[in-house]
Design a protein around this nucleic acid. Structure first.
Lengths: 197, 197
DNA sequence: ACAGAAAGTGACCGATCGTGCTCTTTCAGC
DNA sequence: GCTGAAAGAGCACGATCGGTCACTTTCTGT
């Protein structure tokens, strides 16, 4: 039962990479199986259907995201330095963690935002959870803490800059996308910090 | 030769709507043909291949975007009011112009950003052109005009808020996404205006 | 070491895809 | 109104997809 788990993870990570490139639907079971050195039918011993695999991919990539971004920033004390660390790690994740194929979560977001169902629900749930975490992080930035609305507004801008970074770098091919995003985010932190001194 | 052109446009607009929902690759010729009341082979009298149709879709949707957003703001004098109009129309376009299926250009951006070729090039070209236009718009906001870098930074944030708006509204289901985007954009205009009084 | 479960293979099915073919209908220019 | 081209229909093709089944190989717990 242990070898199966290792194979399962290999499948999921390879599937995630293909999802980042071609999309969740276009990533075919045959291609994923071949890439991990498996037959297509061998794949079905780990997932009873394609949708089951897609669901597992969504869970797995969110878990990896959390490991990559949050676990790195967690030891820092709440505050500006921790938020900067999170933002930087998020940029790293988006730029280089998936063989320069971009953040799979953003690809999933756009692909699933129009298709109700368990896949969309799973992704939305994780994203809302992550949003709550970051809102609390923003609230810990000032004394007295930011209101719910202020924290939501700060998160909205932070997430926007990350989406903008991805678009500017990947589609538009702008070389200073990362700098633009960092500059915008630092200015946001300044604004938030000044609002309640 | 005139009836053919009308059919061609009907095909493209229907194809665009399906692209916004399912994606460029997943939008099948058969479904598009059926929705327009055509046979699949009848479609091939207008486009020699699927890729040719996809290319035409990309051109057409950018043309429609320009009509919807720019033509409406053009009569206004360059300045803050015009930029606000552009932003509002862009939000309208993203929210309701495609039967609540979101902005097709954003779907295209994420789907094509990892697939080099003529489709990506066509999209990128239009997007870069639109970026130049908006950068000039920002520069006309102050006296003396903003530098190239400042205008690029302002455009980056504007585009980011629009991406953020789409994500917040469509995937996350946040009801006040539009308000968040507008608030962030107005604050951006304030900042730009204050920088050089 | 052995038995049973887990992991993996290969052949195959039905559906759907893009596309080419032949044929018919419809339209536009003289 | 006639004629040729444009517009469209119907069919069939090869490829690819997700999925099933019977079978073999490999591993794991006792």
């Amino acid at each position: 039962m242990r070898k199966g788990d290792a194979t399962r993870v290999r499948i999921l990570d390879e599937a995630t990479r293909q999802v980042a490139v071609r999309g969740l639907t276009a990533a075919s079971l045959g291609d994923v199986a071949e890439a991990v050195g498996l037959s297509k039918s061998g794949l079905f011993k780990h997932f009873e259907s394609k949708e089951a695999m897609q669901l597992a991919v969504i869970d797995r990539v969110q878990e990896r995201f959390s490991d990559f971004v949050w676990r790195e920033a967690e030891p820092l004390a709440p505050g500006r330095a921790r938020l900067e660390k999170i933002f930087d790690r998020w940029l790293d994740w988006s730029e280089s963690e998936w063989d320069d194929h971009g953040c799979p979560l953003m690809a999933l977001s756009v692909e699933l935002d129009d298709q109700p169902g368990p896949l969309r629900d799973a992704l939305q749930k994780g994203m809302l959870r992550w949003r709550r975490t970051l809102m609390r992080e923003f609230q810990a930035l000032t004394d007295p803490p930011l209101s719910e609305d202020q924290a939501a507004a700060a998160y909205f801008q932070m997430k926007s800059y990350l989406l903008g970074h991805s678009e500017a770098r990947r589609l538009m091919g702008l070389p200073d996308a990362r700098r633009s995003a960092q500059a915008a985010f630092h200015a946001l932190l300044d604004r938030v910090g000044q609002a309640q001194p």
